[in-house]
Amino acid sequence: MGRLRIGFYGLTGCAGCQLSVIFNEDELLDIIKLFDIRAFPFIKASNDEERFDLVFMEGLVASPHDIETLTRIRAKTKTLVALGACAHSGCIPAYRSFTLKENYEHLLYSKAKDIADVEPEPISKHVKVDYVLPGCPPDKKEILHFMKEIALGKTPKFNHNPVCVECRLNGNDCLLIHGKPCMGPITSGGCHAVCVTGGFECWGCRGPTGDANYKAYIALLKKKGYKKEFIKTRMMMFAGKIQPEEMKACLQ
């Protein structure tokens, strides 16, 4: 089998996910040997779009240009990966859909047609997505592991445990016990609980776990003194447009 033809693209986003690939400083030169990087506009001037075995797509859809890029690349790609929280859920930028228009009305202005706003959405709203590497930012070693599995022809497996599992393995103090609004119990792990290990409560950037008890979690935060509106905002901030029905029901 020849080297896989791969591409890295960015829609509306912060480029942090693409940097999470490049910032694998020790492995970057090996990646280049193992894969045929056909396109990576962030760091390459010459980008060949003919066909891809694998494409990593960063960013959310927020402009007509994003839709055009996404559908064009999807049509040429065998396996499309949503890279990071924006592509996965719409991340913080999609929160705009849940806030009052008057909050950002003063920021709106007339734009040319080709750059006008479209509803902020994760890429799965517009095209079929084969895999998701979640997180804001995604874990850079997880990206490497994923690439290795694909190169070996395996089906990559993902962590479905809540963040708390890895947090415990790190021996961290539970921040909920300290009264912090940590979202570890309802958030998909795989991040090695990097935030809590750094002293900060989890904000849920890898998205909600499928089988969390949202009702009990909300009740717990209320008991700790957090108001419903605060809890709602926190839970929606990174879950964006992929809130499970059970979660939505609890946030009504």
């Binding site: 509306t12 402009s63 930028p93 705009r96 806030t99 950002y104 009305e105 920021l107 706003d117 905002t233």
Partner: peptide, 21 residues
């Protein structure tokens, strides 16, 4: 031609300790 993300609008109504995150 980057899509607009309206961060300043999203910040409105958030707490002072959330802005940096």
């Amino acid at each position: 031609v980057e899509g607009s993300r309206y961060f300043e609008g999203i910040l409105k109504g958030k707490h002072y300790y959330e802005a940096h995150e």
